[in-house]
């Protein structure tokens, strides 16, 4: 096993940037799992892993929303951490990206969403301190200093989530020897787990769509796609 430190650093930088975009700046959805994970795959030369992880996590976290003061799970950290680990795990195997690797990465790193929520809560304390400094500065007539505090709130997000993503990318290299030791039947099982988890994530997405008659519309969508695929297969055979 040889760690490619450039890849770990690159994963950290992208993880930090999308963490800032998620809450502090713009919110143009670069931090959504589909985007964050796919770009991570692109940066780490493993587009299939990034896309597969991004697709699954986009669906899994589709219904989560940051409403008022509530803190949802950090879907961005889950996506960057999982896709970075999947990419480095693939690189360490020296072979191509496989559904078994995607499943293993998802099962091991999807929990980073919860870690991210705790980190978000922690960072709120830092922002509260900045707000107090800003208020004191405004009272003292130092308005420029007061206003500058707003931007200081972004950097801890970059540093913390960048570091966590880099750690997960690094962990991918250490998981590879474990994957090699798994019996063939377990690896085959993991390969089957990916479509199963993706189906579950799609069902969670339908439920999280907040549509009034979500089961009906989801069933209609499923029926339309099934009929289209069957017709396509029958046409090909004919």
């Amino acid at each position: 096993m040889s760690v490619v430190w450039d890849q770990v650093a690159l994963a950290g930088v992208w993880g930090g940037l999308v963490a800032v975009e998620r809450k502090a700046f713009l919110q143009a959805m670069l931090s959504r799992p589909l985007v964050a994970a796919s770009v991570m795959g692109l940066l780490l030369n493993d587009v299939p892993s990034g896309l597969a992880v991004g697709l699954l996590l986009e669906l899994f976290f589709l219904g989560t929303a940051n409403l008022g003061a509530s803190l949802p799970e950090n879907d961005t950290l889950a996506a960057t951490a999982t896709s970075a680990a999947a990419a480095t795990l693939t690189a360490a195997t020296g072979a191509g990206s496989t559904p078994a690797i995607w499943s293993l990465a998802v099962l091991l790193f999807i929990g980073m969403g919860r870690v991210g929520r705790r980190a978000d809560r922690l960072l709120e304390g830092h922002s509260a301190r900045l707000a107090r400094v800003a208020l004191a500065s405004a009272e003292a007539g130092n308005l420029t200093r007061a206003m500058r505090q707003n931007l200081w709130g972004m950097w801890p997000h970059f540093a913390l989530y960048g570091a966590l993503t880099a750690l997960c990318a690094l962990a991918g290299y250490f998981v590879e020897p474990l994957l090699q030791r798994l019996p063939h039947v377990v690896v085959r099982g993991l390969a089957w787990a990916w479509p199963a988890m993706a189906s579950v994530a799609a069902a969670i997405a339908a439920q999280g769509s907040h549509a009034r008659r979500a089961p009906l519309y989801a069933a209609l969508g499923a029926a339309a796609v099934t009929v289209a695929i069957v017709l396509l297969l029958l046409t090909e055979r004919a």
Partner: peptide, 10 residues
């Protein structure tokens, strides 16, 4: 959103 999720599941 619901239609797309169902279609993708299929």
């Amino acid at each position: 959103a619901a239609v797309c999720a169902g279609g993708l599941a299929a």
